[in-house]
C-alpha cells in the first residue's frame, strides 16, 4: 500500500536522488540504503530532489540526520530541493532549515556546491 521509490541519476557530476511518494518508518530504509550506497562509493556531493515527495514522517528526517555528518566530514553535503509546502513544514517544525541547505531547485543546489568548492 505504501508507495515510495527512489531514482538515482547524475547531473553535472553531482549525484541526484529523486524521491517519489511517501517516506515513513516503513519506507525510510530504502532511502537509507541509497544514501549508504553513495557514501560507500565515496560520493559526497548529493542532491535529494523532493519534487514528487508527497509525505515525510520523522523516520524519514532521521535518515538525513544519521548520514549528513559522514558526508560533510568528507567535504561534501546533502542538499535538498523542490520540497512542497507540506513536506517543508515538517522540516521547519524540527528546525532543519538552519542545519541543512534546502533550496528551490537542482540548479540552485549545483550553484551552492560550486560556490562552496
Amino acid at each position: 500500500m505504501n508507495t515510495f521509490k527512489i531514482n538515482h541519476r547524475t547531473s553535472s557530476g553531482y549525484d541526484v536522488l529523486d524521491l517519489y511518494g511517501e517516506l515513513d518508518a516503513h519506507t525510510a530504509s530504502q532511502l537509507e540504503d541509497s544514501l549508504k550506497l553513495l557514501i560507500d562509493s565515496q560520493k559526497s556531493n548529493i542532491i535529494v530532489n523532493c519534487k514528487d515527495l508527497d509525505y515525510i514522517a520523522s523516520a524519514g528526517l532521521g535518515v538525513f540526520m544519521a548520514y549528513i555528518e559522514d558526508v560533510r566530514s568528507s567535504g561534501g553535503d546533502i542538499k535538498l530541493t523542490n520540497m512542497n509546502d507540506k513536506v517543508y513544514n515538517v522540516f521547519d517544525l524540527l528546525g532543519f532549515p538552519t542545519l541543512y541547505d534546502i533550496l528551490d531547485d537542482e540548479s540552485d543546489a549545483i550553484n551552492k556546491f560550486l560556490s562552496e568548492a
Binding site: 520523522s58 532521521g62 544519521a66 555528518e69 559522514d70 515538517v90 532543519f96 542545519l99
Partner: peptide, 22 residues
C-alpha cells in the same frame, strides 16, 4: 537537540515533539 544528534549520528525522539506541536 537536532544539531547535537547530527554530530553524534543519532536520530529519534522527534515523533513526540511533532505530535505535541501539531
Amino acid at each position: 537537540d537536532i544539531s547535537e544528534q547530527i554530530k553524534n549520528k543519532r536520530r529519534g525522539g522527534m515523533g513526540i515533539y511533532l505530535m505535541k506541536k501539531l
